[in-house]
Amino acid sequence: LPGITPRPDLAAPEPLTPWQAVTTYNNFYEFGTGKDDPARNAVGFKTEPWTVTVDGDVAKPGTYDLGRLLFGIGQEERIYRMRCVEGWSMVIPWVGIPLAELLKRVEPTGDAKFVRFETLHDPKRMPGQAWKVLDWPYAEGLRLDEAMNPLTLLATGVYGRSLPPQNGAPLRLVVPWKYGFKSVKSIVRISLVREMPGTSWARQAPQEYGFYANVNPQVDHPRWSQAKERRIGEFFRRDTLMFNGYADAVAGLYAGMDLRKWY
């Protein structure tokens, strides 16, 4: 991808997880529930043409061709830690644009309080959707101030190349201080809404997954501890950091909130 601005100021100072691991060890149930299913089943997934529908409380709703929607917004490379709710983590060099830039372009109205994202639902192209493991289409959401945070990225690439389909091509969210499942893949709809939207995993198992899903070593998943994680490629588990190490940038978003309640 040409014309990418590196953002060393936003780069996690840790060795990168190899491309091979980033692109073969994926949770993307639309292409199967095994870790290596997406890399196998997403081969040939067509991402052109691709449209994204923007609707809800915005001044400029519409169904946009992806290229036109992002046209002119500078692409950046950001090296983020990615912590899966299952207890493993990676360090990934994403390419993308700040979500805030896109939202400014479509102009949320004063009524918008949350952003809801939806993944493509097309069982013909996404064989994992033939079985109702989750309530398709996959939906995720952020509070508007979380969405506007400078760390929140809409990724179009990884390792300097376009996203492979198993990583959520052509457009995915990356919210580095939240568990990976918040970072919804293959986005076809972005809605600005007034109420907290229902999200896929929180609907699937509300006592296990919440709307916020901030990485928090002090709040365990009911079935396993979140205090530690295994960085892919490392033998020993390492301590999980509050907000995945991004507390300086995002802790203020949750001032005064009981994070045990709003998990």
Partner: peptide
């Protein structure tokens, strides 16, 4: 070498 089972070998 490079087989997906080796990415997170302990878990696998």
């Amino acid at each position: 070498p490079g087989d997906p089972v080796a990415v997170n070998p302990i878990e696998t």
